Lab assay of single mutants.
Amino acid sequence: MKKYKITVYDEKTGEKHTIEIEMSEEELEELAKKLAEKHNVKVRIEKV
Rank of each mutant, 00 (worst) to 15 (best):
M1T: 15
M1V: 11
M1E: 06
M1S: 12
K2V: 14
K3S: 03
K3R: 12
K3A: 04
K3I: 06
Y4T: 02
Y4A: 04
K5C: 10
K5N: 05
I6L: 06
I6T: 00
I6C: 04
T7N: 02
T7E: 06
T7R: 00
T7P: 00
V8F: 14
V8Y: 13
V8G: 00
V8A: 02
V8K: 00
V8P: 00
Y9K: 02
Y9W: 15
D10I: 04
D10Q: 02
D10T: 01
D10C: 12
D10W: 07
D10N: 14
E11C: 10
K12E: 12
K12V: 15
T13I: 02
G14W: 02
G14S: 03
E15I: 14
E15T: 13
K16M: 14
K16A: 14
K16R: 11
H17F: 15
H17N: 06
H17Q: 07
T18P: 00
T18R: 02
I19A: 03
I19Q: 04
E20H: 10
E20Q: 05
E20N: 06
I21V: 14
E22W: 12
E22M: 10
E22F: 13
E22N: 07
M23E: 01
S24M: 13
S24C: 11
E25H: 09
E26R: 09
E26L: 14
E27R: 07
E27W: 06
L28T: 04
E29I: 13
E29D: 11
E29H: 14
E29W: 14
L31G: 01
L31K: 02
L31T: 05
A32M: 13
A32P: 03
K33N: 08
K33V: 10
K33W: 02
K34S: 11
K34V: 12
K34A: 11
L35Q: 01
L35N: 01
A36N: 09
A36R: 13
A36Q: 11
E37H: 06
E37A: 08
E37T: 11
E37R: 07
K38R: 14
K38T: 09
K38D: 10
K38L: 15
K38I: 11
H39C: 09
H39S: 12
H39F: 03
N40D: 11
N40A: 07
N40C: 12
V41P: 03
V41H: 06
V41A: 08
K42N: 08
K42M: 04
K42L: 08
V43T: 03
V43Y: 00
V43I: 13
V43E: 02
R44I: 15
R44D: 10
I45C: 04
I45L: 04
E46T: 08
E46G: 03
E46H: 04
K47M: 15
K47D: 13
K47F: 08
V48E: 05
V48H: 06
V48K: 05
V48P: 04
V48N: 04
V48M: 08
